[in-house]
Write a protein that binds this DNA or RNA. Sequence first.
DNA 1: TCATCCTTCGTTTTT
DNA 2: CGAAGGATGA
Length: 747
Amino acid sequence: MTSPLLADLNPRQHEAVTLPHTSALVLAGAGSGETRVLTTRIAWLIATGQASPLSILAVTFTNKAAREMLLRLSALTPVSVRGMWIGTFHGLCNRMLRAHHRDANLPQLFQIMDTADQLALIKRLYKAHGLDAERYPPRELAWFIASAKEAGLRPQAVEAGDPFARARVEHYALYEAMCQREGVVDFAELLLRSYELLAGRDAIREHYRRRFSNLLVDEFQDTNLLQYRWLQLLAGPDAAVFAVGDDDQSIYAFRGANAANMQHFERDFGRPERPARLVKLEQNYRSHGNILDAANALIRHNRSRLGKELWTSEGKGEPIRAFAAPTDLDEAAFVVDAVKGIADEGVPLSEIALLYRSNAQSRVLEHALFNAGLPYRVWGGMRFFERAEVKHALGYLRLVASPEDDGAFLRVVNFPPRGIGARTLEQLQDAARGRGTSLWQAASSGAVGGKAGASLGAFVTLIEKLRAETASLPLSEAVAQVNEGSGLVAHYRSEKDGEDRIENLEELVNAAQGFVREAEIAGDAPMLGDRVSPDAPVPDEGPSEGATDPLTAFLAHAALEAGETQEAEGRPALQLMTVHSAKGLEFHTVFVTGLEEGLFPHENSLNEMDGPEEERRLMYVALTRARRRLYLTHAQSRMLHGQTRWHVASRFLDELPRDLVAWLSPARTRTGAVEVDEAEWGRAARAPAKDADAPGWRIGQNVRHAKFGVGVIVGAEGRGSDARVQVNFRDVGVKWLALEYAKLEAA
DNA sequence: TCATCCTTCGTTTTT
DNA sequence: CGAAGGATGA
């Protein structure tokens, strides 16, 4: 049987797509068509009648990936995607919890907190209980709670030996109680609650196991322990789990991702009668040979790998270009020049990416681009649903939907200002605490008297009015009504630069409209909850399941999908982003900048478990973003935290085969240091080394030591036989050396 | 209640 | 160096 679905698949892709009903791990290299294989697998299962759309659950990490999958799938199959569960882990868990909110012990209209909401809640918690925010920074507690939840641990299960740990566990318990009282959940809670629901309710677990005989997972190397266990619970004995991932692209260990999940896949998802299969996709359709050869050579330096080698049927292409700049400013100037040249060749600016390890590095690049008049777009930063005015509008909507939500109450009770100050709120919070109620209840029952009480009463009346007015309106009109009725629009109109904010409020109305439209097209958008039937242990499944409450669904959507950082502008622009956010993207030309020891690999990672290997994977991701042309640059000195720092070239440059790399800057020594003459040394050399008057040596110079290896002189003191220099060695860090004894040589 | 000063701190980030 | 958040004063 030759289905048009399978045309153009290479043998390995074909094998993966047409595997029999058994669990399989697809080890998919960068640019090997992983998304295509995943979606084609689904389409093939349906086209051949092996699976009903209802039996499909496909899970991704980002909304973008989920949308992409949905889009491709609707192009591949005539069957409607409605009925399939396709979405992010969080989106699917949300959906499940809405359907079983009683069993999950959640209010029907529970609200989802984003990171900022969560932090605000912790701060309120600290205030309410008089906890020490100095000793237990709120951010740290948030991190602690998320880690515990990702390990599947409730407070009583967390081991706490010392008093400090015990205190944090106590705070965790208080946090939980507060969330429960207010009817809010954080991101990790969505997963943990859903996990516990499946673990604790046999009927529900069996229901979903019967239904989902085909589980498909994208970016499997990014799953954390809880997500892995969630999948295990969901996968019944007859289920086939199709997991696609690349251990070499695991770059999110710092937030709990556990690439070792790939190593356990066979053991945990294989069945005696149907052992798990392994398919490797190694043919790359993105990059030219030299780029792949470099990436392969680099990643071979990692020890813990499943093992994989990318190849292409295309030619070798151009050599990789490398450049050593004296300073970060020179590096930026070089990039600007090169970009101009590439643009002159006809490459669109939007096909050129500038990558860096940390966000702070974008500043210098932006500055140079701005001065050169080159349009650019920086990824990362403030996202749409995180903007203050949007959060305020969402706060009103949340309060309308769920009055117990103290976080929402506090956000909007005095915005726009209506004379409800800190003192009043303190009284109100005391009253609410005393009665064990929400702020909303305390306010509406007149717990605070006098003028302040009257202001609160007016606020309560306002919210009730909004609730009544919006109850029967379509979602987008309800949002518009809240924008106006809350006084937000009027407030921003009177503000000097409030136009942008009003525009964003209008954009929120559009977002609501778009959300509803999408939900209608999909028949049942992933974010819209299933019909809730509290009496039946398991709600009906099927195309008829629909949205019960568009407002709550929209609020969940706003929390789960923060939206674009910056709308793409009309004219094409250079793309600036961290290597992390470049994952999954590709460009004609890629610049990887700041390739310096301490920056990339980042100094903080060197002491971490698996840190250096994760940094190398990050570099691997960076290299494999390029289709045709790849530039690698580093600067010998760079402004960091307000002072000039000297760095040796990154070890990753040394790990690339020499014959693949063409150095555009002066000759490079075997060790990776760069020899430049005084004229080219530029700014760095002109800055006089104040106390580095030891003859023959100067700050910034590359040196080699018989035992410590290569490094850069970063400081000096004394003279004559006392002269000492401070050297930052690539491998062993900063050391002071007496020039009289140390056998230093120029490198 | 807001504005301004001052301290602190500095990887990566999606949901 | 520069952003962000807390504290302080008008």
